[in-house]
Design a protein around this nucleic acid. Structure first.
Lengths: 195, 195
DNA sequence: TGTCAGTTTGGCAGTCTCTGCCATATTGAC
DNA sequence: GTCAATATGGCAGAGACTGCCAAACTGACA
């Protein structure tokens, strides 16, 4: 409620367009639906659509509810316990996506297309890279070398974080999400133990 | 030389187009150069360009010399020593890119645009995901769970492998590439030791 | 050498994504 | 109620990409 009126209106418009687009995608398929159709169905001009989302794939990377912003990561990050940090972070996300999830739950509608449509996938990966780079900056600020920070950030952000979300989704979202992170962290630790 | 004539001609055409495109990119910038211009400069029709590369970004993901194919990974993979496997794999790549590198050395010309141009970056990430998925399949075939395989593959492929290449390139390619992998693996091991 | 099937290439028309520009409408403050 | 800031819409156009068909080319075989 601290958000000014303008921003709130914009946000509700964004959500409405996303929902409309997902409806169309579910019915006709991602590639078959044009931006013009989405805009028309949502009652805005195509020009406005592009102002909001930048691109068709922007539908999957723009929603602030669907992605975790970096400030939040910073709050949960302990450089000396990275696995624990990710466990806490994902647990938080899981709570938000619980049974009482409002719009947050809807955000997962798009995951199907992230998995199935290469252009969407590419866009989401580019967005993930943003997060990974931010995390790497945090790690470097704590004394890690450039190489260590880059590699660690990407391994945990792409591997542990996104990998867990993905597998959780593929399994139908029935098992608790934190379990996947636990398993992911164990696998990562086991893989490195031998070398 | 085992390659049939047709395939060899095609490959030399591909290399010629890539070289021509990189020249144009270096001179005018990636976004400023159109596919039509590349095709014209290389002496082929735009239609043929698209048949070869599929897209403008395909210039960076098509060259077989620039990417490591999965069969090769399979040969070097030991599930019980994943860090060692990657160390060996990257050492091989480094040897290929040595001072005597012919076309292979040229392949690195594109890395600049992979780092700087978001569309190129997205395309390369999508291609990396292919490799990661293939690696995950290999790991699952050796008894890993789906989650462990997915997470491990992505952490090493995106993090250790690509992260090392990237940092090596950013540092001017003066230090030996395998050193970066060693450092990356150590960082990964250290990060997980505490959890 | 000449023929012929299979493959590769080029040209064309058209769709879709995305952007710059300017006019119009809406908003929120005073 | 007026005004400046901001959001929206419409338009024109560039560039990426595809389907389609005709022309050129390749390599084998008679």
């Amino acid at each position: 409620m601290a958000m000014p009126l303008r921003a709130r209106n914009r946000q509700s418009a964004v959500h409405h367009i996303i929902d409309t687009a997902m409806d169309l995608f579910d019915e006709h398929g991602y590639q078959q639906v044009t931006v013009d159709q989405i805009a028309a169905a949502a009652g805005v001009s195509p020009r406005t659509f592009y102002r909001y989302f930048g691109s068709k794939e922007g539908l999957f990377t723009t929603d602030p509810y669907a992605s975790t912003d970096l400030a939040e990561v910073g709050r949960y990050l302990d450089v000396h316990d990275i696995p624990g940090s990710f466990q806490r972070l994902v647990t938080l996300i899981a709570e938000r996506s619980g049974p009482d999830a409002g719009r947050t739950g809807q955000a997962w509608r798009g995951m199907r297309y992230v998995l199935e449509e290469p252009p969407v996938r590419a866009a989401v990966y580019a967005a993930l890279e943003e997060g990974s780079r931010g995390l790497a900056d945090l790690l470097r600020a704590e004394g890690m070398t450039a190489t260590a920070a880059r590699v660690t950030a990407r391994a945990y952000w792409f591997g542990v974080y996104f990998g867990s979300l993905e597998q959780w989704h593929l399994d139908g979202r029935v098992r608790p999400l934190p379990d996947y992170v636990t398993e992911a962290l164990a696998a990562l630790r086991a893989s490195g133990a031998t070398g």
